[in-house]
């Protein structure tokens, strides 16, 4: 199978497009999902989109191995963040009896 030209040689742009898609999906999830857990998963997507970009830049750009290093950091931080965020979600559930972000509006005014 002969791949079209723009697909034949995967380049930076491909990775960036996937990253952008991932980011958009993540952002959409964060903005629209009512379940807090889903929002968190959206955030994970956003982070991973960033990871993808970093690694891509590392592979094609001038970043050398720094991009990998950053990606590694982000993964670790994402893990930590997920732990803290889930703990907060749990605490919110205990406090309000729901994880629906529509109903969590105590910060209003």
């Amino acid at each position: 199978m002969v791949l079209p030209d723009w697909l034949a040689e995967p380049g930076l742009n491909h990775f960036l497009v996937v990253g952008a898609l991932l980011f958009s999906l993540g952002l959409l999830a964060v903005m629209t999902r009512r379940n807090l857990i889903m929002v968190l998963m959206g955030i994970e997507l956003i982070l991973n989109a960033a990871n993808l970009n970093l690694v891509a830049f590392s592979r094609y750009g001038a970043l050398a191995l720094d991009g990998h290093l950053f990606a590694l950091f982000v993964i670790i931080i994402a893990a930590a963040e997920a732990a803290v965020a889930l703990a907060i979600a749990l605490a919110i559930y205990n406090r309000f009896g729901t994880v629906d972000v529509e109903q969590l509006s105590d910060l209003r005014e």
């Binding site: 969590l104 910060l107 209003r108």
Partner: peptide
């Protein structure tokens, strides 16, 4: 504007 809904702010 201050709805308290984080998703609004994000929007």
């Amino acid at each position: 504007i201050q709805t308290g809904n984080i998703q609004n702010y994000l929007v």
